[in-house]
Design a protein around this nucleic acid. Structure first.
Lengths: 191, 191
DNA sequence: GCCTCACATTAACATTTGTTAAAAAGAGCT
DNA sequence: AGCTCTTTTTAACAAATGTTAATGTGAGGC
C-alpha cells in the first residue's frame, strides 16, 4: 500500500499530523473495481468509507420510470460521499459504480466515527469532506433549478475536465438532467 | 420558554433522555422574526443552530442572472439545515428568510458541536438531523434531474400540504425550478 | 364602496428539451 | 481490411417551459 499516495489525497481536504495517521492507516484495505461494476448497491448493507486513488466513479439511482439518474461523479484522488450521507440504518441509499477501472482504499465507517470523536484533526478532516459534499450538492441544486442545460454543460466541463472524453455520454446526460440526444445537440452548438 | 413545545420538536428526530436535556436547554435563546425578514444573510457571520416552533422559512440564493432561487423550505416544528451544511469558515453560504411570521429558538453551533462530542444522544440526534437534510437534498436532486415540473408540483403538495395557499407562488416556482407563469399554467391543468 | 397595490392568471409567441428512429462514427476482433 | 457491436449524431416532429405583456383578482386602507 502506497501511504504517500493515500496521504496526498487525504491532505487535499485538511492537514493531518504524522502522529494522527498511525491508527488510521492500520485500518485501511485496498480495493480494485473494474469498469462497470457496482461496488455499493442500493439497499445493501454498508460499512465503509472510500477514497479513490485513481479511476472515475458515480452514484446513481433508478427513478420510477426505470431510468438511471446520476447523482454525483467522483474522479481521481477524491473521497467518496461520506458514509453518513449515503446510508440509512446501515443500508445504502444509492448505487455506486466504477465507470472506469478504479483503485480505492476503504476503511470502517464506525471505526472512523470513533476516531473523529477522539481525534480533533480527523474530526476536522471529516467535517471538511462533509462540507465539500454538501457544497457540491447545493451547487447542483442551484444549477438544476435555475440555469439551462447548456450552462450546466459548461460548468460540468470546468468541474470535470476530460470526463467528457472518458465516460459514456448517457451518464453525463443523466447527470445534467437531460437526455443523451439533447446532450449531443448541445455539444454540436458549443464546439 | 415552553420546554414541552421545544422537546416535542426535537424528539421528532430522535429521543433524548431528561438528563441530557439539562445542559442543552440552558443555552437556548428565543427568536421571533417577522414575515419577509432575512434572519441569516449570505456571507454574514453565523454562530447558531435554529429550531422553528411555528412559521415557514426558506433558504435561497441570488443566481448570476439576478433571480432568487429557493433551495429549501422549512415548516412548523422543524430544525433548520444544520450549521455545518450552510456555513464555510464562519460565513453563511445561503440566505434564510421568514416567509411568514416565525417563532424560533436558537443555540450556539460550537457549543452544540462540543455537546455532540460528549453526549451520545445528542450526537445521534445531530446525525439524524444531518441525514434528514441530506435525504431531502438527494430527493430534490433526483426530482430536478429526472421528472417533469408537473410531477415536482405533485410531490411538493405531498411534502408541504397547505404551503401552496400560504406562501407566494414565485417562491414555490423557484423551488420547483420553473417560472411563476409556468407554475400558474400547471396549477390550471391539475386542479 | 372604492382605490391601490401586490399577486396570480391568461394569452401569444419563442425557445428549449423530449421522443423516436435512422444514419454515422468508433472500438474491438479476426 | 472487413465485420460486428456499441456509442454518438442527426433529423423530424411533439411537448414542455420560458418570455413578455396584458388582464383579472383579492386584501387592506381611506
Amino acid at each position: 500500500m502506497n501511504e504517500v499516495e493515500i496521504k496526498s489525497v487525504i491532505e487535499r481536504y485538511s492537514a493531518i499530523s504524522p502522529a494522527s495517521y498511525e491508527e488510521f492507516l492500520k485500518g485501511l484495505e485496498e480495493l480494485s473495481v473494474s469498469k462497470g461494476t457496482d461496488f455499493i448497491r442500493k439497499d445493501g448493507r454498508e460499512f465503509y468509507e472510500y477514497i479513490i486513488l485513481d479511476g472515475i466513479c458515480r452514484s446513481y439511482l433508478i427513478n420510477p420510470s426505470g431510468d438511471e439518474v446520476t447523482i454525483s461523479l467522483f474522479g481521481d484522488q477524491s473521497v467518496l460521499s461520506p458514509y453518513i450521507t449515503r446510508t440509512r440504518e446501515g443500508l445504502s441509499t444509492l448505487n455506486f459504480q466504477a465507470i472506469t477501472d478504479t483503485r480505492m482504499v476503504k476503511f470502517s465507517a464506525s471505526d472512523f466515527e470513533e476516531l473523529m470523536v477522539q481525534n480533533l484533526e480527523f474530526r476536522e478532516w471529516g467535517n471538511e469532506v462533509l462540507k465539500h459534499e454538501l457544497a457540491m450538492k447545493v451547487s447542483r441544486e442551484i444549477d438544476l433549478a435555475s440555469i439551462t442545460a447548456k450552462e450546466r454543460l459548461f460548468k460540468f466541463r470546468e468541474l470535470f475536465p476530460m470526463f467528457e472524453n472518458l465516460i459514456p455520454h448517457p451518464i453525463i446526460a443523466s447527470y445534467l438532467g437531460i437526455t443523451n440526444v439533447s446532450l449531443s445537440r448541445l455539444r454540436k452548438t458549443t464546439m
